[in-house]
């Protein structure tokens, strides 16, 4: 028996018939073709599928599409506005907070929830907030920096750029 759902995703309204067992992540990926939301595990552990449902970070692999009826959803595709990157997206780019990019959408959506609740988190609070998101590439170091960048940017503070410091170090010698 299919259920009818009405959802708003990244500002667009959709009405669809869904099977009970259809997970929200598959609704987004397969039906709406919003493939920025990823699936990395089957135990609700990795966080690659994190999206915002009514403003709150949720693992979309652990929610039925049917449960999303009436919800306002935001995915990674909805973060940039009018071609301008969200401060978090910008932070991830500036601070090299991503490598393969697979966990990145989930990281950004979780971080968005964190900054909503706590606009100026400490390193420790950021690391604690990322408990539900695995990254296998970055060792998290630059993800923490990226989120701090976004937090600083939102409060209009000074952002320390890595480049200035780096230029003092030996970087490249012409091989003899």
């Amino acid at each position: 028996m299919a259920t009818t759902i009405n959802v708003s995703v990244n500002g667009k309204k959709y009405q669809d018939e869904v099977e009970g067992r259809l997970l929200l992540v598959h609704y987004l990926r397969d039906k709406l073709r919003l493939t920025g939301t990823h699936v990395g595990c089957d135990t609700s552990s990795c966080g690659a599928c994190t999206i915002l449902v009514d403003g709150k970070a949720v693992k979309s692999c652990t929610m039925l599409a049917a449960q999303a009826d009436g919800a306002t959803i935001k995915t990674i595709e909805g973060m940039a506005e009018k071609g301008k990157l969200h401060p978090l997206q910008e932070g991830f780019k500036e601070k090299h907070g991503l490598q393969c990019g697979f966990c990145t959408p989930g990281m950004i959506m979780t971080a968005a929830n964190l900054l909503e609740d706590n606009p100026h988190p400490s390193d420790e609070e950021i690391r604690h907030a990322l408990e539900g998101n695995f990254c296998r590439c970055t060792g998290y170091h630059n993800i923490v920096e990226a989120i701090k960048y976004a937090a600083d940017k939102s409060k209009g503070g000074d952002i320390e750029h890595a480049d200035a410091k780096e230029l003092e170090k030996p970087l490249f010698e012409v091989p003899s």
Binding site: S44, G47, T50, V53, K56, A57, V58, K59, T62, M63, T110, N113, L114, A129, E131, G132, N133
Partner: peptide, 9 residues
């Protein structure tokens, strides 16, 4: 409990 996402839901 769990993580942000789990606590939200």
């Amino acid at each position: 409990i769990g993580d942000i996402q789990v606590r939200n839901k």
